[in-house]
Design a binder for these strands. Structure first.
Lengths: 197, 197
DNA sequence: AGTGTACCTAGAACGCGTTCTCGTTGCCCC
DNA sequence: GGGGCAACGAGAACGCGTTCTAGGTACACT
């Protein structure tokens, strides 16, 4: 396969190919997640759709959860950028945080299968993936931080961290069927107002 | 086997046997969890240790997660009763809730393998088990409620629910290797004080 | 040119959750 | 006291995550 490509840049060609493979793998994972959630993301199918051998998939992502977490890190970054486009509405910090959480939740619930797949990976125990999970959590906290803006409360970091926990737990509860999307949104708004107003 | 037992009460005997089997299954699950966490709770081993056929295990608990959640519901109830023995210390509601959460966390981290196994089952997506998960969550909220006692804040139920979320998320983060036990305890105390004082 | 090394493919193989098959046994009811 | 029935035992079988094997190919260093 590689020999059929134009050898335009004989040096970095290899690196570009593996980067393209990684991208195809993430895309395939997201597509399959879109079609059927966590269970539909089967490693053999991901590899086949990305036109990559199964062993290669495992070389890049050492488990299914790591693969989904990498995809989640992507999506979370995109979400953060998209939310940062337009500043949150509201006078009080609690209002602004509630607004940004509401918009984020709307975006996530619009793609329930993808979100479910990724949140499942996020709440899996696998401590090998702790770093990847912390990265996602960090992005969530950044999203919240950006909305707090000028709050005049002490221990702002603690508040943001607690809100991050609540966000994770409500997402997990929604994916697990414990609450529906409306309850999740309501509890998030409640937490924002309780902690910031 | 049944014929070798004394036919003392020929009517309820069957029911008593199946109740005993269920108890043995839960005990076996907890023992195996104690020995090696979630992964060590293998359905074939649970069945063998409880001296029950694999199909019988699945008749009583339709999945590994349901089995562990049943065990967790047990343990959570026991924990609640044990905590209710002695009222929490502290003048302000936040202090009392922080105290009871601290004691609960100590109890849970004293048996890390068992806790990890059960929290793993709790944060698994399986929406078949939503009812079992809600029951556990309800018990956690009861534990918190008992410590709030006479707080003069509005929307007490909401605060308790949010604290329940934080508890779940910190437990899940601890099991997933995102935070250590000290951070978990600190964040729980922080949330209690932020929300109640 | 030759050797090492990293990455890749194709596919078999393994482990464990889950399901299925088939035979057996005790209990209820007519 | 015989027929239906729900629960059980023993074990095979299936699905999917993960690992392993046996090669094949391009780039680096000498």
């Amino acid at each position: 396969m590689g020999t059929s490509l134009p050898a335009s840049a004989p040096q970095k060609q290899r690196a570009a190919q593996t980067a393209a493979r990684r991208r195809r793998l993430l895309e395939a994972a997201v597509e399959l997640a879109h079609e059927g959630g966590y269970d539909a993301v089967q490693m053999r199918d991901v590899a086949a759709r990305a036109e990559v051998a199964l062993g290669t998939l495992y070389r890049h992502y050492s488990s299914k959860d790591q693969l989904l977490l990498a995809a989640l890190a992507d999506q979370a970054g995109t979400l953060r950028n998209r939310l940062a486009q337009r500043p949150p509405r509201g006078d009080r910090p609690g209002d602004r945080v509630a607004d940004v959480l509401r918009r984020a939740t709307r975006a996530l619930t619009r793609e329930p299968s993808i979100t479910a797949a990724m949140v499942t990976a996020l709440s899996a125990p696998e401590s090998e993936a702790a770093a990847a999970k912390r990265e996602v959590f960090e992005t969530l906290r950044t999203i919240i931080s950006g909305a707090v803006d000028g709050a005049s409360v002490p221990d702002l970091d603690g508040i943001v961290r607690v809100l991050g926990y609540v966000w994770l737990a409500t997402l997990s509860a929604w994916v697990g069927g414990m609450v529906d999307a409306d309850e999740m949104a309501a509890d998030l708004a409640l937490a924002a107002h309780l902690l910031l107003d």
